[in-house]
Design a protein around this nucleic acid. Structure first.
Lengths: 212, 212
DNA sequence: TCCAATACTGTAGAAATATACAGTGATTGA
DNA sequence: TCAATCACTGTATATTTCTACAGTATTGGA
């Protein structure tokens, strides 16, 4: 699959969410509405780009004729409400939810969480200690490419994946740790690439509590 | 769900198959085609019947606006290995896991945790903040009357239930908060009664992360 | 015996939807 | 500096799709 632009990823995420939540792929008009476009063509252009890059399949003439092509794993799991994949070691350049990245599956009803997560990620390090997120915890993450200020996000900088609180002012993004022993990460979006992989929607701690 | 006629079951199966294979619910016209009807109304009548009986949901105006209404979870939530009770407000003198105390059931495989919990308890207050236990979290608790030093326990003092780290020296017990803003609770077992309701074996945070 | 539900045919119109065409401006790699 | 891609606006139209209305025939209760 050809690499997607961030806007295209947003559109793809929206389609994915619609299918998961509404049971129906969106129409052009619904995309236009969700993103505040003023022209149907904007949505159509994005769909064609996604189809050209192999992310979706379009069925000419059919209403809502959008089909997800990539990552059968998450698509299949979207139907299987009963389990969540644990994403393991994250390799450089590869989408975090690619099939090879999945380490195991947890039997865990995703409806327990609000909003619903798409995968679990094992937390490393103490940088989010004061948000109650400790090493070894399983973070429940909802896939999204966009984040709002104050949300705890799973962000990717090159081949590094990190969990931090998101803060954006114009083109300046700060990834804030929840622990005074760590320093915030500053990113200038004009010069550096930042990919949001998802936002934290819950947490699962399966082991006992060791002495801190 | 009301009982379906055999014809209605065929239609429902067809809708299921379409969603699985095509990724899209069918239109009236597609149903007509698949079954060899000669009128759109035949398909529409069936859909209305299925909706009336609770098998599907129809969204007026939306093309392909058919949604399956399989209700798997509620029935299964009975008890066994697959679900955990959430203990609600704890009344004085009543054992914490008494049936009246149970607020709801969570569909959550207890084998996810080690060791296995017997119930969930909603955390109140910030006294265990530094152990990553925050207000609103659901603490997974294993029933036990005995505790070892260092373990996080659910303890009861009269009609108060509290979550703290357990420390015992002879007949002196300390219940230690994990937050310097709180003071340890000291109990002399020769004069006061202390009941251990269980020990923490895990944690579930189902909501998003608000700003601390 | 009448009523409601089932299972269809046939027609028509309105609303939803996809898609073509003609643009604008910015960015990017060759 | 050119061509291609990106990310859109705006208009128009054919097609798809839903939905209403008017029927026919059969079946199983109340």
């Amino acid at each position: 699959m050809d690499p997607l632009t961030s806007r295209q990823t947003e559109i793809l995420d929206f389609i994915r969410r619609q299918i998961a939540e509404q049971g129906l792929p969106p129409t052009r008009a619904e995309i236009v509405n969700a993103f505040g476009f003023r022209s149907l063509t904007a949505a159509d252009d994005h769909l064609r780009a996604l189809a050209r890059k192999g992310a979706i399949e379009l069925r000419p003439g059919a209403s809502r004729g959008i089909r997800l092509l990539d990552e059968p794993t998450l698509a299949a799991a979207a139907n299987d409400e009963d389990s969540l994949p644990l994403v393991g070691k994250v390799a450089a350049g590869v989408p975090i939810t690619a099939i090879e990245q999945i380490e195991s599956w947890y039997r865990l009803d995703r409806h327990l969480f609000h909003p619903q997560p798409d995968f679990l990620l094992r937390v490393q390090g103490w940088s989010m200690r004061d948000a109650g997120i400790l090493p070894g915890d399983l973070l429940a993450v909802q896939r999204t490419a966009i984040a709002e200020n104050g949300q705890i996000v799973v962000a990717r900088l090159g081949d590094e994946v990190t969990v931090k609180r998101f803060q954006r002012r114009g083109e300046q993004v700060q990834l804030l740790p929840a622990n005074p022993d760590f320093t915030p990460i500053r990113i200038d979006l004009r010069r550096e690439e930042l990919a949001i992989e998802g936002r934290a929607v819950g947490l699962l701690r399966t082991g006992g509590f060791v002495l801190a």
